[in-house]
Design a protein around this nucleic acid. Structure first.
Length: 334
DNA sequence: AACCGTCCCAACCGCTACTTG
DNA sequence: ACAAGTAGCGGTTGGGACGGT
């Protein structure tokens, strides 16, 4: 694993770190503290550049790093945070004690991204990937696909949750040997737990479309969303019906936010170019892009008083909406 | 046993943001 | 205000591990 031993033209070593190098770096930092990475390698007797030392320390040697598999709760948190922050791996890592941005980024790319794709969700937008769903062969899938097509055409008029549920059902139904309620629980992988968990949450969360309750609650807490023409609010106004559903708790799982559909190119472009925006722009985008995956849940609504007409005012606002609890999976899986 | 393809992740690269003078 | 140095971040790479044939 890792890279082949190499050395740069400046004589500095590159590639995987040896145990001896780790000891030198760790002992030096324990004695003198981290920082001044430019001079650290020379002082510590390492033939490495400061950048390499910093990365080794922050990604591997730091004593507070939690190693090992990501728990279900951690994965859930990562998906939630990614839906809010995009590929802001350092920001996500800051909210997951013991995990590094590099670790989370790798885990996202190798595990979670694939899982979302399997579920028929776009890993960038967290939206249903209607264009990418495979053609079905069963009558059930045909019917679901037809329903999806119809709902998609009428999405301004129908409950977006229904559209999301249908999409996920179709995606799950496309998977061979997909068992939603697996009796043979002896060897359930984390991936399988996720796949099994998704439809359960959908069942809990499905509820009649009620845009008025949404608007009322937000008017109470944050004065509601304005209809000003400021950047970002046009998107929100356009999606007013899209966001408008009840925020009441159902079965211990509170409301979910549904992302824009992939074929909404404006929204898709918005999310894909998220990283190129400045902080203010990003915070404005967050107000129109609070998309969680369908199987996530909050105990505090992301649309509560933390939200203003201009989106998040501070990172604390993001923290406040991330104070969610994860239902006990054992009741669902065992 | 040998080969091949895929997965995984540590480490690197290049860019941007921040700090300092 | 500006330039140079430094730190941090996100995307990408590459090679060992592993499973299938």
């Amino acid at each position: 694993m890792g890279r082949a031993p190499a050395s740069s033209s400046s004589g500095l070593k590159k590639g995987p770190w040896t145990a001896d190098e780790d000891v030198k770096l760790r002992e030096y930092i324990e004695r003198h503290g981290a920082g001044n990475w430019r001079t650290l390698p020379q002082n510590a007797g390492l033939q490495r550049c400061g950048k390499s030392c910093r990365l080794r320390w922050t990604n591997y040697l730091r004593p507070d790093i939690k190693r090992g598999r990501f728990s279900f709760e951690e994965e859930e948190a990562i998906i939630q945070l990614h839906s809010l922050l995009g590929n802001k791996w350092s920001a996500i890592a800051a909210r997951l004690p013991g995990r590094t941005d590099n670790e989370i980024k790798n885990y996202w790319n190798t595990h979670i991204r694939k899982r979302l794709l399997r579920m028929g969700l776009d890993p960038v937008t967290h939206a249903p990937r209607l264009h990418h769903l495979p053609h079905s062969t069963s009558h059930l899938n045909d019917n679901l696909a037809n329903l999806l097509f119809f709902l998609n055409q009428q999405q301004q008029m129908v409950n977006p949750q229904l559209l999301n549920i249908a999409t996920t059902l179709l995606a799950l139904n496309q998977q061979p040997n997909q068992t939603l309620f697996n009796d043979n629980s002896t060897h359930v992988s984390e991936d399988e737990k996720f796949d099994a968990y998704a439809p359960q949450i959908h069942d809990h969360q499905f509820q009649p479309y009620n845009s008025s309750s949404f608007l009322q609650s937000n008017n109470q807490h944050a004065g509601g969303f304005s209809t000003s023409s400021s950047t970002g609010m046009d998107d929100l106004s356009a999606h007013e019906s899209w966001y408008g559903f009840s925020s009441s708790n159902v079965g211990g799982c509170s409301q979910m936010l549904l992302p824009p559909l992939v074929h909404d190119e404006k929204a898709a472009a918005t999310s894909s170019s998220f990283g190129s925006l400045n902080n203010n722009q990003q915070q404005q985008q967050l107000s129109t892009y609070t998309a969680a995956t369908p199987f996530t849940s909050y105990t505090s609504s992301p649309l509560d008083s933390s939200y203003t007409s201009n989106g998040f005012s501070t990172e604390d606002d993001i923290d406040s909406i991330l104070n969610f609890e994860i239902p006990d999976l054992t009741e669902l899986l065992y």
